[in-house]
Amino acid sequence: MSKISVELPGLKLKNPVMPASGTFGFGDVPACKKFDLNELGALVIKTTTSKATTGNPQPQIAVLNDGVLNSVGLTNPGVDAVINDKLKPLREQYPELPIMASVGGDTMADYVLVAQKLAAANLVNALEINVSCPNVAQGGMSFGVHPEVVEELTRQIKEAVSLPIYVKLTPNVTDIVAIAQAAERGGADGISMINTLLGMEIDVTTRRPVLGHNVGGLSGEAVKAVAVRMVYQVHQATNLPIIGMGGIASPEDVAEFMLAGASAVAVGSAHFHDELASLHIAQGLPTLLAKMGVSDINDLVGQVKLN
């Protein structure tokens, strides 16, 4: 039987598959009741902010032929409620499950505060820093588009907490490598990539966009080739472990991301077609590795053979 366990900073994963932030809520969506979450490599919870937020106008989600557009926004009850009402019961039920919390904010101080509270609660194993949030201090452009902002934000959070931190990169930039290197300089322990690509879909009968917010984040099969290319580039240019995501729907997709340079993966949009997609993908890995003649999944990382 091939080895499928993976070790990352702060995370001992029995397999490299986890649901991406937002797809399994706080471990409280209906799918979570249908299987033992311990069968996942880890669980990444929905992005948490300092205060409760309600998100964007409806409709917030449009399922397309080759992906999903969403403008949910960072709907969450605020960090104190997340810790007390969501994470405590989740950790009680799953004492061994690696849990990664996702941190968002409007300002650097917001991020640091949320990170500190989550770390102090002692309920999660690592933090994912969602730098796709709008930076209110700089006119609403995402934190993640400025290398110097990413470096400073990463450094401030690292100084404030002892938990490993993974910076989640937005693909809506000209050069993703520059952003990844900035996170590395700031002291990040790892990279999560990619977040959604900004997209828009218009209904020609109403002439209106299909999302209430007009534009939203595109995920799923449509973005996979972009995600694989970006993972490959960042793996070549940094020494940080990468959690890859963007259109993963099969064990073969996991292998592809790992060959490009990811050490683990997160699954999002595939859950719209199969609510237990993460579980089914993980279960299919040993068979695929046997077919590939691979005895340890970690041997795939970065081993793409270029033409």
Rank of each mutant, 00 (worst) to 15 (best):
residue 276 L to W: 15
residue 199 G to F: 04
residue 215 V to L: 14
residue 262 A to Y: 04
residue 194 I to L: 07
residue 218 L to I: 11
residue 246 G to L: 00
residue 166 Y to A: 04
residue 187 G to K: 09
residue 256 E to C: 07
residue 240 L to G: 12
residue 260 A to L: 07
residue 250 S to C: 03
residue 204 V to D: 15
residue 255 A to N: 04
residue 254 V to F: 15
residue 251 P to V: 03
residue 268 G to W: 05
residue 170 T to F: 05
residue 204 V to E: 14
residue 270 A to Y: 02
residue 256 E to L: 14
residue 204 V to G: 13
residue 195 N to H: 01
residue 266 A to W: 08
residue 267 V to R: 07
residue 257 F to W: 11
residue 184 E to N: 01
residue 188 A to P: 00
residue 166 Y to N: 03
residue 272 F to Y: 14
residue 243 I to P: 00
residue 186 G to Y: 00
residue 270 A to V: 05
residue 202 I to F: 12
residue 196 T to R: 01
residue 174 T to A: 09
residue 170 T to C: 01
residue 175 D to G: 02
residue 255 A to H: 12
residue 188 A to L: 00
residue 224 K to H: 05
residue 241 P to F: 09
residue 206 T to F: 14
residue 227 A to N: 01
residue 172 N to Y: 11
residue 179 I to N: 05
residue 169 L to P: 04
residue 279 L to C: 07
residue 232 Y to W: 14
residue 249 A to H: 09
residue 252 E to L: 13
residue 168 K to D: 03
residue 219 S to T: 08
residue 259 L to R: 15
residue 207 R to E: 14
residue 190 G to H: 01
residue 196 T to K: 07
residue 184 E to G: 08
residue 244 G to W: 01
residue 182 A to L: 00
residue 260 A to G: 08
residue 216 G to L: 04
residue 208 R to I: 11
residue 226 V to T: 14
residue 223 V to W: 05
residue 248 I to W: 01
residue 177 V to K: 06
residue 207 R to A: 11
residue 202 I to K: 12
residue 240 L to T: 14
residue 266 A to F: 10
residue 272 F to V: 04
residue 229 R to K: 15
residue 195 N to K: 01
residue 276 L to G: 07
residue 276 L to F: 10
residue 263 S to M: 06
residue 165 I to S: 09
residue 253 D to S: 10
residue 258 M to V: 09
residue 259 L to C: 12
residue 186 G to V: 03
residue 272 F to I: 07
residue 174 T to C: 02
residue 250 S to G: 05
residue 260 A to N: 08
residue 219 S to N: 08
residue 227 A to Q: 03
residue 212 G to Y: 13
residue 236 Q to E: 13
residue 206 T to I: 13
residue 270 A to P: 00
residue 206 T to N: 08
residue 216 G to I: 00
residue 198 L to A: 14
residue 198 L to T: 09
residue 169 L to K: 02
residue 280 H to L: 05
residue 194 I to N: 00
residue 183 A to L: 02
